[in-house]
Write a protein that binds this DNA or RNA. Structure first.
Length: 887
DNA sequence: ACGATCACG
DNA sequence: ACGTACGTGATCGTA
């Protein structure tokens, strides 16, 4: 759906000029109005994500309005030079935003906007008009809303026809009548003397229009009547002046104002010129700015593509290995444990050498393989982790991983929408390369192109990595993330690849047996459901299920989704008392989830040759710094319910006589919270190793330890969860099935008991608002642009994220440190034990008999001491012949 | 391709 | 008044 944003340029820049304190750049230019304008512009762009944007300006001095009324706008002071000098700056900046700007001799901005809005309306599009002038309200319709600035430009009031009715009791068309009666001092529209907004509204509520007021003037009493009678013509003329002309002969159309976003480097340059540092940071343009500076000095990128397909090619490549600047490996498919290699490219000394994957197995490739294996030869790439796995499956080892532009870019902004090389180049203002999709196609259309085209693309990618390395490395340095990258994330990626290559043995037989049982009960339950309903239907279809429950069986509708009835577990639990079928459906859901995701799903992932499952940990996905796991996800294997937990019995050691050792952090997030908030009560609770939920219950309910019953502890536990998630009374009330007021009461009690936590929550949100980002203990960073958003929902979400991310992210930092330490311990001590899995607060190992006693101490000790906090960390270890038993 | 649902921390 | 708990991935049905 197309959405236009139409901005009244003169109005907004004027507002901004008078609202903001004077501000000059180092060369003496005034910039406050441009800054205010830009703030407003970004607000509307971020909030509305328009497809079309236009800024309209008044043109010159004389408009058609002056023809009839020479005093029009006569009362206005001359534009001060401090403002006029900002118009060219603004226009230049709008160009940098790639936003269209129009003006037309003889017309004002609002006429252009009125005309455009009308066109938009006729074409079924929606529009938002932004102005400081309430006259604009006359343009509001169902499709056209109007934003009017309040308090300068920092806030806006959004008007729809309904909103105008609510506030003024008028239709949009009556706005001109309002102006006709009350006038507008700033435009020197006289109106009727003595009639302000209140009187004008009263008159219009009674008579409806200027004309009708004049026609019924004898019904009005006293001084007011005299004033109106004496100013009949003024009123009529004022109404005309206030009427926006909507038939401006525009020579451009809506298509001419379409907007596809701005180019980061262009905008970065414009901001730099204006010295808008905070805006640049807010949009995270710092890197683009730097990169661009570097790029212009370095001039354009030139390299020669060499497709290695013969003796001379290999010789050239071998000779260039010593000066390699980047190497990339492409493969087909998302799962690196299955995808086929496509080719390898090496950027070195102004050349890019491209080796089709099959050629890696030619005898001539031996020197290249030695180089790949050489830990002393630094590898700079994009997604080294994936490359290592792909190569490993072909028997080619990779060492010397030194810099990964994907991983670096993730640390610089973990929420970046497009982490592809193409996207990174764009973000850092470097010369673009084609997307993988453009070269390979996607989905069923995936094709490896002919050698020449493939070489070109791989070469471009290697060169792109070469160009990205320095700006990214510099930015890591600048943001204080040097150690996080080089000492933790980069080496961790190699450890992860090792764990994935190792894999974990999963007994297919055990899964199949369990699956047979699930299948039997699934069929049984299906029959019962059909019998209970009286007919058959697809239970897995939420659409059909909704119809059955809420239409045919007449159960009450608890909640709706945007596509129909909600039938999730929360809803079904509420419906259980009404009909026996509900319980059966819940049971069916549980079983079918287990069967399809965990029995059939996992069976498909067991490699027949080894009997193992090799997951793929993704290090650049989660915004908080956590890992994620794919193909399959081994971080969500059932545990909470006994029937699902059985699945874990299939996860076994891969060597006879070995044992599974699992260790998990106890309450790591609340311990992190105790540390970063510094709350004395919380710290003391952990120093004394109290049961934290019981302790919370004691403080929230104001009772002694022995008076805390199971229900109080359960509620306190939910409060603790809420605190970690970024508390809201609504969220807590949902979780505990209590009223919002009761939840608010719990939260208040909690904060009184743990005032340091309240201080943390307030401070971190404030800090996020000031800085635009939050950080973890290890300086991992997450930007929260929406924390300044005017939309309540988006802003609230950002605030909760500001509270949660330092907690969850620091916990992620800690277990990553522990993993590095464990890896060092295992290799350093020459142990045979292997680290296999990470599940956010848990590490799973397989351990030979003779190392069992050592590992039972070493793993929890290493985890506990991974990072020193003001409270102790606790890790609990357990042992078993499979993952189920190690609990 | 996307929403709904549900598995985990 | 606003209406969501934080972070993920896999599967299924439907558009």
């Amino acid at each position: 759906m197309d959405k236009l944003v139409l901005i009244d340029g003169n109005s907004i820049i004027n507002r901004a000029f008078y609202a903001l304190p004077p501000l000059t750049s180092s060369n003496g230019l005034h910039t406050n109005a441009v800054l205010g304008f830009t703030t407003m512009l970004l607000k509307v762009l971020e909030e509305e994500k328009p497809s079309h944007v236009l800024v309209a300006f008044d043109a010159g001095k004389v408009t058609f309005r002056h023809e009839g009324y020479s005093e029009y706008k006569g009362g206005r002071q001359k534009t001060p030079p401090e403002l006029s000098e900002q118009f060219p700056l603004l226009k230049e900046l709008l160009q940098a935003f790639s936003i269209s700007q129009f003006e037309l001799a003889g017309y004002e901005a609002d006429d252009i906007i009125g005309t455009m809005a009308k066109q938009a309306e006729e074409q079924g599009k929606t529009a938002i008009i932004v102005s400081g002038d309430k006259d604009m309200l006359q343009l509001a319709t169902e499709r056209v809303s109007v934003w009017i600035t309040r308090k300068g430009v920092s806030e806006v009031e959004r008007f729809t026809p309904a909103g105008i009715d609510e506030k003024y009791g008028l239709t949009p068309a009556q706005i001109v009548d309002l102006k006709g009666l009350m006038g507008d001092a700033s435009d020197n529209i006289p109106g009727v003397p003595g009639v302000g907004e209140k009187t004008a509204l009263k008159l219009l509520h009674e008579f409806g229009s200027v004309e009708n007021v004049l026609a019924h003037v004898e019904e009005i009493k006293g001084k007011l009547r005299e004033n109106i009678e004496a100013n009949k013509e003024n009123a009529t003329m004022s109404k005309e002046l206030a009427t926006i002309y909507r038939e401006v002969p525009l020579t451009y159309s809506l298509d001419d104002v379409s907007w596809k976003g701005y180019d980061s480097s262009t905008l970065a340059a414009a901001f730099r010129k204006l010295e808008f540092k905070s805006l640049s940071e807010r949009l995270n343009l710092g890197a683009a700015d730097e990169a661009m500076t570097a790029e212009t000095e370095e001039t354009a990128t030139h390299y020669e593509v060499i497709l290695v397909d013969g003796q001379s090619g290999w010789e050239a490549l071998n000779g260039a290995l010593a000066e390699a600047e980047a190497v990339v490996v492409d493969s087909a498919g998302d799962n690196p444990h299955q995808s086929e290699g496509i080719g390898l490219a090496l950027a070195a000394g102004g050349r890019c050498y491209v080796v089709p994957y099959a050629s890696l197995f030619a005898p001539e490739a031996s020197r290249l393989k030695e180089w790949l294996l050489d830990g002393g030869a630094q590898k700079i790439s994009y997604d080294l982790h994936r490359a290592e796995l792909v190569l490993a499956r072909s028997g080619i080892e990779l060492s010397g991983q030194s810099f990964d532009v994907q991983l670096a870019a993730y640390l610089l902004d973990p929420t970046e929408a497009d982490p592809s090389l193409h996207g990174l180049l764009q973000r850092y203002g470097l010369a673009p390369i084609p997307t993988d999709e453009a070269v390979y196609g996607k989905g069923a259309k995936f094709r490896v192109p002919a050698a020449g085209d493939l070489a070109k693309h791989l070469a471009a990618k290697a060169d792109a990595v070469r160009r990205l390395r320095e700006p990214l490395a510099e930015q890591l340095e600048k943001l204080g993330m040097h150690r996080l990258y080089y000492e933790l994330e980069q080496p961790l990626s190699v450890v992860l690849a090792g764990m994935e290559k190792q894999g974990i043995e999963v007994r297919a037989e055990a899964l199949k047996e369990l699956g047979t049982e699930f299948q039997r009960r699934l069929e049984e339950t299906t029959e019962s459901i059909y019998a209970s309903a009286g007919f058959e239907f697809n239970i897995g279809s939420t659409k059909q299920l909704g119809e059955v429950l809420f239409e045919r069986l007449g159960l009450p509708v608890v909640k709706k989704t945007k596509t129909g009835y909600s039938t999730d577990a929360e809803v079904l639990e509420k419906l259980e008392p009404y009909h026996e079928i509900v319980r059966l459906i819940l049971h069916y859901r549980t079983l079918s989830k287990l069967q399809s995701t965990y029995i059939e799903g996992l069976l498909k992932e067991i490699r027949p040759e080894s009997g193992k499952i090799h997951t793929f940990y993704r290090q650049t996905i989660a915004a908080t710094g956590r890992l994620s796991s794919q193909y399959p996800n081994l971080q969500n294997i059932p545990i909470r319910l006994e029937e699902g937990r059985q699945i874990r019995k299939a996860f076994v050691p891969s060597e006879p006589g070995w044992t599974i050792v699992a260790a998990d952090y106890s309450q790591i997030e609340l311990r992190v919270l105790a540390h970063i908030s510094g709350d004395e009560g919380l710290k003391e609770a952990f120093l004394k190793e109290m049961d934290i939920h019981t302790k919370t219950a004691m403080d929230v309910f104001g009772v002694a330890a022995d008076q805390v019953d199971a229900n109080m502890r359960r509620q306190a536990k939910a409060v603790n969860f809420g605190i970690v998630y970024g508390i809201s009374d609504w969220g807590l009330s949902q979780n505990l099935n209590i009223t919002r007021g009761e939840a608010a009461e719990f939260i208040e009690q909690y904060f009184q008991a743990f005032p340091g936590v309240r201080r943390y929550m307030v401070d971190i949100v404030e800090k996020a608002r000031t800085d635009g980002y939050v950080t973890t203990l290890l300086e991992r960073r997450r930007y929260l642009p929406e924390i300044r958003h005017s939309n309540f929902n988006l802003r609230s979400f950002a605030e909760r994220t500001a509270m949660n991310t330092p907690i969850q992210g620091t916990a992620a930092d800690i277990i990553k440190l522990a993993m590095m330490r464990m890896h060092e311990e295992l290799t350093g001590r020459g142990l045979r034990s292997r680290m296999l899995l990470q599940v956010h607060d848990e590490l799973v190992f397989e351990v030979p008999e003779e190392e069992l006693e050592l590992m039972k101490r070493l793993v929890p000790d290493t985890m506990k001491t991974a990072l020193k906090l003001d409270v102790p960390l606790l890790a609990e270890v357990s042992v078993g012949s499979n993952w189920y038993e190690a609990k």
